[in-house]
Design a binder for these strands. Structure first.
Lengths: 170, 170
DNA sequence: CTCGAAAATGAACATTGTTCAAGAAGAATC
DNA sequence: GATTCTTCTTGAACAATGTTCATTTTCGAG
């Protein structure tokens, strides 16, 4: 993305882009905000009736979004702020909202466990799924091939839940 | 990294940097090659006696390397080639060599399984561990806090192996 | 010492984020 | 409607950085 391209696409001058977004970071962050909102909307559309099916659905929805908007997700996760400025709080809050959707079903599946432990577990599972998907879609390095990602994500979630003592269909 | 900084650090002219590395991509890729080699050396130092302990050791070694050289690993995994040129084969081969170190113990732990299945499983576990570590060290988004990464990685490997039917100590 | 090939040089160029003085547009007052 | 003040918009100019290439330097062969 280039400032000049944005200006031309918007039919205004370069300076107006700066008036609107402040600087390049502001431009990127605006895009990232929309990305989080679009992702959240997609995750919210996953049925929440059965926690296990919900987890599968969330992983699949995340995969779908990552497949269709690979560059947007990369921008969201890989962009570093200029001059070591802190990452905007409001985006962090939005991401946490989206993440709550993935946390909830795990809480239901692990009722006996310490809540702090479940919180860390869900963070870990999200990071793991994110890693599997993002590396897989890169199609380089040691990744799961994209055409197998979908079925393998189901397997991953099932295997990990089994390791946590959740028996299928329970 | 800037071409001018490299030239100054090497005590030569800008043009000489181009004579040596071709272009900016060539410069980055040279660094990435050294990164893979350093990582491989570190992973090879992990004892291979017990497969379970080896897996834990490999995850821990990866975490250590990622902690000490976060920027190098990011360059290796996030750098995109200019003009959609293909990723260099020799780096891919070096990464595969490093990956073989992680694949081997999984094969020993899952002797009955289909080799293709184990190959995909190990790719998935690597991608998962990579995701947990890279997001965790970013310290933003939904990540496992860095100070907990070490113990949580042990838990992750154990949990996933348990889900695969590997009983501890067997 | 001379010549030619090879290597090194850095000025100049292209791209891109950024600034800001000048101008245009609009709002407020008379 | 005219004047003045405020706000917004503009794009030329600047800074940083990757890239090129004619020129210069180096250096070995004859």
């Amino acid at each position: 993305m280039k400032v000049r391209d944005v200006a031309e696409a918007a039919g205004c001058s370069i300076g107006s882009v700066y008036n609107e977004f402040g600087d390049f970071d502001g431009l990127i962050l605006t895009v990232n905000r929309e990305t989080v909102q679009a992702l959240t909307a997609r995750l919210k559309a996953v049925p929440a009736d059965d926690p296990l099916r919900q987890l599968h659905g969330l992983a699949d929805a995340y995969l779908g979004f990552a497949t269709e908007h690979a560059n947007l997700l990369r921008s969201l996760f890989e962009h570093r702020m200029e001059d070591d400025r802190p990452f905007p709080e409001d985006i962090l809050a939005m991401v946490m909202d989206a993440f709550a959707l993935m946390h909830a079903p795990l809480v239901r599946l692990l009722p006996g466990r310490d809540p702090d432990d479940v919180a860390l577990l869900s963070r870990m599972m999200f990071s793991a799924v994110h890693g599997i998907i993002s590396l897989g879609l890169e199609e380089r390095m040691v990744a799961v091939p994209p055409e197998m990602l979908r079925e393998r994500l189901v397997q991953f979630v099932d295997t990990h839940l089994a390791g946590l003592g959740v028996t299928r269909g329970a």
